[in-house]
Structures are given as C-alpha cells and as structure tokens.
Design a protein around this nucleic acid. Structure first.
Lengths: 188, 188
DNA sequence: ATTACAATACTGGTCAGTCGGTATTGATAG
DNA sequence: CTATCAATACCGACTGACCAGTATTGTAAT
C-alpha cells in the first residue's frame, strides 16, 4: 500500500509559501503551486482538502516554524528581560529576512475570517514576547500596562520595517532601531 | 456626451471603499460595487478605466482624505512636539475608527506592485509624522536616529491595534497605550 | 427627439475542484 | 524470494462557475 509522504507535503507547503508570499491569495493558482512543487495538481487534493486549507496550512506551518526557531533560541526563564527582548527582536527579524516569503503572511487575511487554528498558532508566537515583557514588569525592570498589545505591535513593526522601501534596510540597522525603540518605550 | 458628475464619482469611490474594506480585492466584484453605488456597471467604466484603477483611486482618495483630516487638525509649526505626537496618534486612531473600512487598505497591496501615485499619497501622511518627530529632535526634546522608520511603524501599530481581537479595544484606551508607547520611546 | 444612464445580456478567459485512469507500495501467501 | 492483490497515491484533462469588461436595450427626463 502506498503511503502519504510527509516529505512531499513539506515540498507542497514550501512551494505554496513561496508563491503566497509573492502574490496575493487569488492571484496564485493551484496549477502554479503544483508546478512549483513538481507534483500533479490532483496530488494537492490528496494532501489538502482545498485551496483555503492549503493556505491555512502554510500559515500555521509558518508560525509553528517561527515559534520553534524562536523558542530554541530564546530562554525566557532566566536572565535579563531586556536581553530577551533584544533576542526576540533580532531573532524575529533574522528569521523573516531568511524567510522573506513568510513575513507577508504574518498579517495576510484573505478576507475570509482567520481560522481559529491559525489564530492559536499565531498566539503562540505572541505569547513568547508577552511573557518576556510581563516577567520584566514583575521584576520591576519594565513598564507596560498592556503587554499583550505591545507583543502584537512587535510583529507588525517588524513587518513594517521589512517592507519599508521594499526591504532596503540592512538587517542589523533594523534590529537596532526596533530594539532601541522598544527598549526605550518599555524601560522603567 | 455625458458630463462627468464629481458627486457620482464620490459615490462610487465610497461604495468601492466600503466593499474593499470588508473583502479582499478579488472577492469584490464590479456588479456588487455598481449595485452598492446605485449606478449601472457600465457607468463604472465611464469614471474609471479598470478595476485596478478604481481600487487605486479608492486608496489614493483614502490617504488624501486622511491627510486632509490630519493636517486640518494638526499644526506642525508651533508648540510642543509631544503634544503634536499625541494629536497625530489620537486623530489617526479616531479617523480609522470612524472609517473602519479604510484602515485595512493602509497596507493592502494587491499582489501587483503598489502604484507610485499611491506611494506618493501614502508618503504625505507619513511625512506629517516624520516632520513632527524631526522637529522634536532638532529642538532636543525627542531622540530618534531614523524618524522615517518610526513614522512608518506608527501607521502599522495603529492598524495592529485596530485589528487586535477584531477591534475590541476601546478607542481611548488604544490611543493612550500607543501614545504612551511612542512618547516613552522617543522622549529624550 | 435626444440625452443620459440603469439594467442586463454577452463574451472570452481564468481557475478551483473533480474524475477516471495509471503507477506505486506494503502485505500476504506459497 | 517472488508473485499476486488491494489499497491508494498520483496525475492532468476536463468542467462548471465566476467575473472583468463590452455591447445592447429600455426608460425617464428635458
């Protein structure tokens, strides 16, 4: 019996991610994705039940990957909250630079309401930032009445910086500017 | 020859803005817009040369309207930069709350590259913020190595706040949080 | 009668999703 | 080890729906 190939699923997600990152939802057609992934169009429907499902999966996978990457590189438990903040910002920016296609998906929104599963995954990424800020507040080092709002801003500011004049800002300059901005805003 | 009626043009733009604000570009169809504007579909082509053109016009008109609104309510020339900042933030947020549909367009991007004319209009809005920050820096009250980046962040942070849990944050709370955040980040 | 326009039919093209056929795999048995 | 079988992955041509843009028609006002 032939079995589903996790590897092929990954290839499809990657191809779709690349295209959805460049063009908007309705401008990407499935035959294009199939070609990019080097599979038949019908195969897409073996792994995903619809275009929407594929798109959602791309976003979920994207957030999960980002989350894995961030949580591998950031230890929230100990140390200086400001250092964590710097780490979160620099790793987020670096991750987005390395995965140019992903950052457009950060706020995609196809018009149809965002599926709860995507929200949940996105939330995991946000929680990381929020918990860093919150622990800083508890320790009396930071000051923020609504860390959850701020965490939300952060992702959008990164996206903002990345799309500023079509991504012409050097990575390190962007990291420093954002870190400066956030640390000054939050420092007690 | 039919005479162009500026009023009718406005009605079409308003109808289109309302729909483009709710759904994404490809999910809004022209007969829908025509119905909403209570004009015939053909009439759309008297006033706009294509769907793209109409969409661009909506965005341009939106930025212009926002710009007019902001510059009417904000006097950059004199007074305290921090007060100006507060004014910019509160007026931007208020404007977006009142024109719910517009704020989704702030970063729309249809996949096709943003037309230069839209960029130019968007820039006018950004310049306002940038010049306020810059004058604050010159006066030695504020501190920012890249006011242009920060101006860019601001629009996205407002959008971020507005879409946070589907716009559940009370207007005044959002204004205060954003102002607090930005003023702390920029104050010397 | 002429003008202006809404309403609507039409056209050409695009694309999501389906379907019937083929290829591949894992299991079972001899 | 090899042959056979059944399950199902894989494929791409096809279809039906949708829609931008255009052409036509009906009607109301001047």
């Amino acid at each position: 019996m032939q079995t589903l190939d996790e590897n092929k699923r990954k290839k499809i997600i990657a191809a779709a991610g690349k295209l959805f990152g460049k063009k908007d939802y309705h401008s990407v057609c499935l035959s294009e994705i199939a070609a990019e992934a080097k599979v038949g169009k019908g195969t897409l429907y073996v792994y995903f039940k619809s275009k929407e499902d594929l798109f959602s999966s791309v976003r979920i996978e994207g957030y999960m990957d980002m989350y894995r990457y961030l949580s591998k590189n950031i230890d929230t438990e100990s140390g200086d909250p400001l250092e964590h903040l710097h780490k979160i910002i620099s790793e987020t920016v670096k991750y987005c630079y390395r995965n140019k296609s992903i950052f457009k998906l950060l706020r995609a929104g196809t018009g149809t309401k965002m599926k709860p599963e995507i929200k949940k995954t996105r939330k995991k990424v946000l929680e990381l930032t929020r918990s860093v800020i919150e622990s800083g507040v508890e320790k009396g080092i930071l000051c923020d009445s609504k860390p959850a709002y701020t965490a939300n801003y952060l992702l959008d500011v990164v996206r903002s910086g990345l799309s500023y004049s079509d991504g012409q800002i050097p990575q390190d300059e962007l990291i420093e500017h954002i870190y400066n901005f956030f640390s000054r805003a939050l420092k007690k």
